[in-house]
Design a binder for these strands. Structure first.
Lengths: 144, 144
DNA sequence: CCTCCAATTGCAAAAGGTTTGCATTTGCAT
DNA sequence: ATGCAAATGCAAACCTTTTGCAATTGGAGG
């Protein structure tokens, strides 16, 4: 779906800034920091402000258009939410590639948690490592 | 194990600051922010500096004495590592209680990842929700 | 017990990332 | 075409974490 439709679907105003941000996310299969996104967006939209990027990432996140990922190593990363419904990610520490994962571990232990009286509301499951490409190639580009 | 033994075991110098930090972590079953830890430590060790807390949390983390947790909501939290070996956490969003979990989802999908050519190096699995106590009680104290 | 050195600490300043207030601009419903 | 709420740019504030440096301290070795 193109950026404009995505925004209208969520009843968000269609601004050039929002479209640019979404396009950046659409044109990559890697996870990006707010800074990464800003650096890309400013190429097509000189003059866009950092706070606009931050504000819009928050909006897009709250509308479910993007996902937010916080690696152990620190920082916050974003990616377009491409799949409907619940899913997890496998992320390459070398190139940042993000691979969606169907599998969800919650099913396996939901019952056990309830037994203990714990009511789960959210969970996170992320896998980090090296993708097929980076496993082989050898040289490390922009690790994080 | 007491703080001093814990430090000596890892061949770290035993300082009053380190002991105080560890004791704070030993006296709770909840996850704490660096700020939380500082606020507690300063009660028993007036004059301790924030940077000392940060530096030591890093040291303790690298020695495996503490765990670091980064909730979706942001921020960085620490807890004493009480279990040997690999484990995950169930965390109460209300009181911060941290419950260790034996179950690890990696076993279930390790093979599938390798098939795809992905080499996992780290992963995280955390569950957030409300513990038995907070489920019932009702009032919310220090949510995060 | 004393001495000495590397490790640790306190302090202050800087760095880094993110948020906020406000005036201006812009999308879009009417 | 018009008006208004929403979005943006800008600058400053904020908060958390890191860093350089001088002073202090733990503990190994004498």
């Amino acid at each position: 779906m193109d950026a404009e439709k995505l925004l209208k679907k969520q009843q968000l105003k269609v601004t050039s800034q929002r479209k640019a941000i979404i396009r950046v996310l659409q044109n990559t299969d890697t996870v990006l920091s707010a800074h990464d996104i800003f650096s890309e967006v400013i190429k097509t939209l000189p003059g866009i402000n950092f706070s606009t990027v931050y504000r819009n990432l928050d909006v897009l996140l709250s509308k479910g258009i993007v996902c937010r990922i916080t690696p152990e190593s620190g920082g916050v990363l974003y990616e377009l939410r491409r799949e409907d419904g619940h899913h997890h990610h496998v992320i390459c520490k070398n190139c940042g590639a993000s691979i969606p994962l169907e599998y969800c571990p919650m099913e396996d232990i939901q019952a056990k948690l309830m037994e203990k009286g714990f009511t789960p509301t959210e969970h996170r499951f992320e896998i980090y490592g090296y993708c097929e490409k980076c496993n082989k190639g050898g040289e490390l580009n922009e690790p994080f």
